[in-house]
């Protein structure tokens, strides 16, 4: 900034042009957060956490649009066939989304994030909750659109298995330190659950309609959440 070409006179000695440029650049280069980020910042009482939240891969537009498309297809299929397909699909979608809220594998600056004042664990917690909430809302919307008659139990019932599957996906992701592993595990676990439900009671929807499964789901969810919490307590050092 102080390079001068011979034709340009020198600034007065007591005027700090460097400082002037910095104050200009500060305004020109600054990023103006959108209303969503500002609101999130106020709610979370932390602009940094809000920014980290809104840069979650699974909360970005492409991901959300894909989720909506998948759930919409499920809703259409449900209306057609009477099978609660939304209820079966939503947990898998949510599980994948939750896994991709996790750092390693998705966050290239992972090690740096581990040295931040806003801890990576806090970021993960807020992201996971937000992703879960968003997917629950999308799923509910798809269910409501395709609900028919006595499907109320199914419309909301799948939220519980979804919690379990999400917690499982997150636990695997944090233990294996890989978002991909978590997503794969979550989707696979859900498929297995649905298929075993089919084998056990003859219909696909058993996984979401059999209320006696709810307690085991919640228990699994709690255990997996505890595992995820423990796995993120101390980031592993074997990063060679």
């Amino acid at each position: 900034m102080t390079d001068t070409d011979p034709g340009v006179p020198e600034a007065p000695a007591d005027v700090d042009l460097g400082r002037v440029w910095i104050s200009v650049a500060a305004q020109v280069w600054r990023r103006q957060p959108g209303w969503l980020e500002r609101t999130a910042g106020r709610l979370l009482r932390s602009p940094g956490l809000a920014r980290a939240l809104l840069t979650t891969p699974s909360l970005l537009l492409p991901w959300l649009l894909t989720s909506i498309a998948v759930l919409a297809a499920g809703a259409a299929a449900t209306t057609d066939s009477g099978q609660p397909l939304v209820a079966l699909v939503a947990p898998a979608v949510a599980a994948a989304a939750i896994a991709y809220a996790y750092g390693p594998g998705m966050d290239p600056a992972w090690e740096l994030s581990c040295s931040m004042a806003i801890s990576d664990r806090m970021v993960l917690l807020v992201r996971a909750l937000a992703v879960f909430a968003v997917n629950a809302v999308l799923g509910l919307a798809a269910s409501a659109v395709s609900a028919s008659g006595a499907a109320a139990a199914v419309t909301f019932g799948w939220l519980i298995p979804m919690t379990a599957v999400c917690a499982f996906a997150l636990a695997v992701a944090t233990v294996a330190r890989s978002a991909n592993a978590g997503a794969a595990a979550g989707v696979a676990a859900w498929l297995i659950t649905v298929l075993s439900g089919r084998v056990a009671s003859g219909h696909f929807a058993a996984a979401v309609t059999d209320t006696f499964l709810f307690l085991p789901y919640l228990a699994i969810g709690a255990v997996c959440a505890a595992i995820a919490l423990y796995a993120t307590r101390i980031p592993r050092g074997t990063l060679r």
Partner: peptide
Amino acid sequence: VEYFALLKEMPAARVPAAVATAVE
């Protein structure tokens, strides 16, 4: 640079000037 300034919990009002200084 701004992202990590925020994650280091720098007061938001100071961030733009700090980012400009660091980049320069």
